[in-house]
Simulated assay, not measured.
Amino acid sequence: MYKTVKIDKKALLRNFLLNNFSKFRYEQLTGSPLEFPEYDLTARKYLQFAEYELLEMKNHSNKLEHIHLINCVSHLKRAIDCQLDTCLYILKLLKIFKRKNLGLNSKLDFFKQAGVFNSFSLDRFNKVRNKMEHDYQIPKIEDIEAYFDLVSAFVSVLESMIMSLRIASEICLTHEELEKETATFFEIYYDFMDSPEISYRISKNEKIYAAPRSKYTREEAFVTVTPEDREEFPYFLKVLLLLIRQDSFVNDKYILQNI
């Protein structure tokens, strides 16, 4: 009997980019219309509520000021939950997380694997959250203000990720070999279907000025991952997000170091 050998899609993509990325230049960026959830309240609105509670406590200090602190914590937690669910909804992943009963830590871990947050930021974020939510202590104003700043940054980072995908959910890179009169194309894109996919394609044109997917194109690789590929899917998303930021906020060296 023959054994089925599982392809390491993550390693294939990583090795290809490490060995070839420096040769490529950008050919095309294409965005996608995104579907947002119809929530009555947004993460930004919860941040407004939290800020109101902080101002109330500072402007009208009284014996019940801890009520404003506790309300502020609740609003900040709702801002986190709302922003995570909003982004997962847009990425067509929320139903999957709900079906598998995956909670806050799993959602945060997904975005960590996708390179949206680094370990240091998440560790600091969770320490502040756990101190206030699980020790049943009235938080200090200094802790609340730090928590407010962290959650505000958290919301902004996820907004930036979504806007990046709206502008460039598909990227095409090209490498021209003039002496051989050929061109190699690398394409990676997020497909916002009900069952989402991230795919990359490597193809070679026999004529240097021919468009990709023309009659002169020879496909050399086509790889797709779905959310069922638990390690590969967030990694492919990480690569796509890194490539979106090239030539703007990060350089080639940064991309290669973080692939």
Results as ranks from 00 to 15, higher is better:
Ile198His: 08
Ser156Trp: 06
Met161Asn: 03
Leu237Arg: 14
Phe110Trp: 02
Asp8Pro: 05
Lys98His: 13
Met193Leu: 10
Thr217Ala: 08
Tyr46Thr: 09
Asp109Leu: 08
Lys45Val: 05
Asp109Trp: 13
Asp252Val: 00
Phe36Ala: 01
Lys10Pro: 15
Phe192Asp: 09
Asp81Leu: 04
Asn258His: 12
Ser152Met: 03
Leu47His: 01
Ile7Thr: 12
Lys180Trp: 00
Phe186Pro: 04
Ile70Lys: 05
Ser203Val: 10
Leu150Cys: 04
Leu173Asp: 13
Phe97Gln: 08
Pro139Asp: 02
Asn205Tyr: 06
Arg124Glu: 14
Met163Val: 02
Ile255Glu: 02
Tyr216His: 04
Lys58Thr: 00
Glu219Trp: 05
Glu197Met: 15
Tyr26Arg: 10
Phe111Glu: 08
Asp252Asn: 04
Tyr46His: 14
Tyr136Thr: 07
Glu232Cys: 02
Leu256Arg: 06
Cys172Ser: 06
Glu142Gln: 13
Asn118Val: 01
Asn251Glu: 02
Ile144Trp: 12
Lys23Phe: 01
Lys63Cys: 04
Arg245His: 07
Phe222Leu: 13
Lys127Arg: 11
Val5Gln: 15
Ser22Gln: 10
Asn105Lys: 09
Lys95Gln: 12
Glu206Gln: 14
Thr224Glu: 05
Phe236Ala: 05
Leu173Glu: 11
Leu108Gly: 03
Glu65Pro: 02
Ser169Ala: 08
Tyr89Gln: 03
Ile7Gln: 11
His68Ser: 11
Leu240Arg: 13
Asn59His: 10
Glu133Gly: 07
Leu76Thr: 05
Ser156Ala: 15
Leu84Ile: 08
Ser106Lys: 12
Phe36Lys: 05
Arg245Ser: 12
Tyr190Gly: 01
Glu142Ser: 12
Val225Gln: 10
Pro37Phe: 07
Ser199Trp: 09
Asp194Ser: 15
Ile67Cys: 07
Phe192Gln: 14
Ala211Gln: 04
Tyr147Asp: 06
Arg201Leu: 14
Phe125Lys: 04
Glu232Met: 00
Thr226His: 00
Arg245Tyr: 02
Tyr89Ile: 00
Ile96Gly: 04
Ala221Asn: 04
Glu27Val: 05
Phe49Ile: 09
Asn59Gln: 11
Ser248Val: 07
Ile7His: 05
Glu145Val: 15
Ser195Thr: 11
Leu69Ile: 05
Lys215Cys: 10
Leu256Thr: 09
Glu228Met: 14
Lys58His: 06
Pro196Phe: 02
Val223Arg: 15
